[in-house]
Write a protein that binds this DNA or RNA. Structure first.
Lengths: 186, 186
DNA sequence: ATTGTAAGTAAGTGGTTACTTACATAGGAG
DNA sequence: CTCCTATGTAAGTAACCACTTACTTACAAT
C-alpha cells in the first residue's frame, strides 16, 4: 500500500467517525503512520483530501457495476434489493460521511449525493421496467417507494442507529417490500 | 419573545445550516441580536445550548400528539402517512441537525434518534394493528417497510437534496406506498 | 559518486474559538 | 432613592488547527 493510499484509508476512517470538521489532519496523519507534513505534501489541503476520499471510496461505481438480474416477477426485485443492500453495507462509512456532510459543506457533498440517487433510481427503473408492465409514471413512483424503503431502512438502522442487521432480517424486509410492490402476487 | 427564546431560535437556525462544529457561538449571538456574553450567561456552554435546542424543537412531541385516525383499510394508512409527513416537514431543521450529528457526537444525538424511531414505529403499529388482521411479526415488518419508505423519501428528497416536494407528489407517493402495503386492495 | 525522490523532524505562523473577567448601564420594584 | 436583575462592552486567555518553512535523512537510479 502506497503512502497516499494509507493516508486515504486513515482519512476515510476518521471522517466517517468524527465528520469533516471533527477530524484533524494530525489525527489522520498519525493513524496513517506518516507525518503531517507528508499529508500536506501529497494532498495540498484538508478539503482536497476530503474530495479524494469521496471519490476513492464512493459507492456509486459499486451500484453501476450491478448487473440487472433476469428472471420473472417478484424474485427479481428481491434479488436486486439484496444486491443493492449489500453494496450499501459494504460502503457504510462512505455513506456516513456523505450523509453527515451533505447538508453543511458547500454543495461539495450534495452533488455526490444527487448523483448517488440518480444512479440508484436508474438501476431500479431498468429492473422494474423489465418486470412490471406499467406506464412510465407509475413505474417511477414504484421505484421511488422501493428505493426510499431500502435506503431508509439501511440508513435508519445501520447508519444512524449503528445496528448490525442480520442477513435474515434484511432478507425478510426486502421480501415483504418486494411482494408489496409486486402487488402481493407470488 | 424572551432573550433565551431568541437565542434558542437563532441557534436552531445556525445548527441546522452549518452543523454543530460549523456553528460559532458568536454567529448565534449575532443572529439573536444579543452579546456573546449573554449567551454564555444563559446557557453556560455551547454543548448545553445544543442540548436545549434538541429538546426545544424536537419532532417527537408532534408525533406523539398525532391521533391515530379511525376508518377502514388503505385510507387510514394514507391518512396517517400524510400526518406524519407533515410533522416531519414542519421540523425539517430539527431532523437536519439530528441526522448530521447522530453519527459524530457522543451519543448525545443518537439517543434522541433512537427515541424518534421508537415513537414513529409505535404510532404506526397502533394504526396498522387496527387495520390489518395479521400476526404481530408480519405487522411489525410492514410497519418497518412503511416507516422506512416514508422516512427515506422525506430525508432523501427534502433533507439531503434540499428539494421542496409538492403536496401532490407527497400524496402520490404515500398513496402508492399505502396501497402496496395494504395488498393492492382499495 | 552524484543526483533525485520520498519521507521525516522541528519549529513556527496566523487565525479562530469557546469561554472568562471586570466593569458599566439601564430599568423596574420596593 | 436604592437595590436587583438583565444586559452590554472591552479585553483577554488558553487552546487548537490548518498549513508553512527550513533543514535533514534514507535510498534508489544513473
Amino acid at each position: 500500500m502506497t503512502t497516499k493510499e494509507r493516508i486515504l484509508k486513515a482519512a476515510y476512517s476518521c471522517f466517517s467517525r468524527r465528520g469533516y470538521l471533527g477530524t484533524t489532519t494530525r489525527e489522520v496523519a498519525h493513524l496513517a503512520g506518516v507525518s503531517e507534513v507528508t499529508l500536506f505534501r501529497l494532498f495540498g489541503s484538508k478539503k482536497e483530501l476530503f474530495r479524494e476520499v469521496l471519490i476513492n471510496f464512493s459507492v456509486i461505481p459499486d451500484l453501476r457495476s450491478i448487473s440487472p438480474p433476469n428472471g420473472s416477477g417478484c424474485e427479481v426485485l428481491i434479488d436486486i434489493g439484496l444486491k443493492i443492500y449489500s453494496s450499501l453495507r459494504e460502503k457504510k462509512e462512505f455513506l456516513k460521511i456523505l450523509l453527515s456532510e451533505v447538508t453543511g459543506l458547500t454543495g461539495e457533498a450534495e452533488e455526490v449525493y444527487v448523483s448517488f440517487v440518480e444512479t440508484l433510481e436508474t438501476l431500479l427503473l431498468s429492473v422494474f421496467s423489465s418486470v412490471l408492465a406499467l406506464p412510465q409514471g407509475e413505474l417511477k413512483l414504484k421505484v421511488k417507494v422501493f428505493g426510499a424503503a431500502l435506503f431508509g431502512f439501511f440508513t435508519s438502522e445501520e447508519v444512524f442507529q449503528g445496528k448490525e442487521i442480520s442477513s435474515e432480517e434484511v432478507r425478510s424486509f426486502i421480501e415483504v417490500l418486494s411482494r408489496s410492490i409486486c402487488g402481493g402476487k407470488e
